[in-house]
Amino acid sequence: DTFTFTLDGIEVRLHGASEELIKTIEELLKRDIRWEELEKWIREWEK
Score class of each variant (00 low, 15 high):
D1R: 14
D1F: 15
T2V: 14
T2M: 07
T2H: 08
T2F: 08
F3Q: 00
F3M: 02
T4R: 04
T4C: 07
T4Q: 06
F5Q: 00
F5G: 01
F5N: 00
T6R: 04
T6C: 14
L7H: 08
L7A: 04
D8Q: 04
D8H: 04
D8Y: 05
D8T: 02
D8E: 08
G9S: 03
G9M: 03
G9E: 04
G9Q: 03
I10M: 09
E11N: 04
E11V: 11
E11M: 05
E11T: 14
E11I: 09
E11W: 04
E11H: 05
R13Q: 15
L14P: 00
H15I: 15
G16I: 04
G16D: 09
G16H: 11
G16V: 05
A17C: 10
A17D: 02
S18I: 03
S18C: 05
E19P: 15
E19F: 14
E19W: 14
E20G: 08
E20A: 13
E20S: 09
L21M: 14
L21F: 11
L21C: 06
L21A: 10
I22V: 10
I22Q: 06
K23R: 14
K23V: 07
T24R: 14
T24M: 14
T24E: 14
E26P: 02
E26D: 07
E26C: 06
E26A: 09
E27G: 10
E27D: 11
E27M: 15
E27K: 10
E27W: 12
E27N: 11
L28C: 07
L28T: 03
L28Y: 07
L28R: 04
L29S: 02
L29Q: 02
L29F: 04
K30I: 09
K30R: 13
K30F: 08
K30D: 07
R31W: 11
R31F: 12
R31I: 07
D32M: 07
D32V: 06
I33G: 04
I33Q: 03
I33T: 06
I33N: 03
R34Q: 07
R34A: 08
R34P: 05
W35S: 03
W35I: 10
E36G: 08
E36F: 12
E37D: 11
E37Q: 12
E37N: 06
E39V: 13
E39Q: 14
E39M: 15
E39A: 10
K40L: 12
K40N: 08
W41R: 07
W41M: 11
W41E: 05
I42Y: 07
I42C: 05
I42F: 08
R43Q: 10
E44F: 09
E44G: 06
W45I: 06
W45T: 03
W45S: 03
W45M: 06
E46H: 14
E46R: 06
K47R: 13
K47Y: 13
K47G: 11
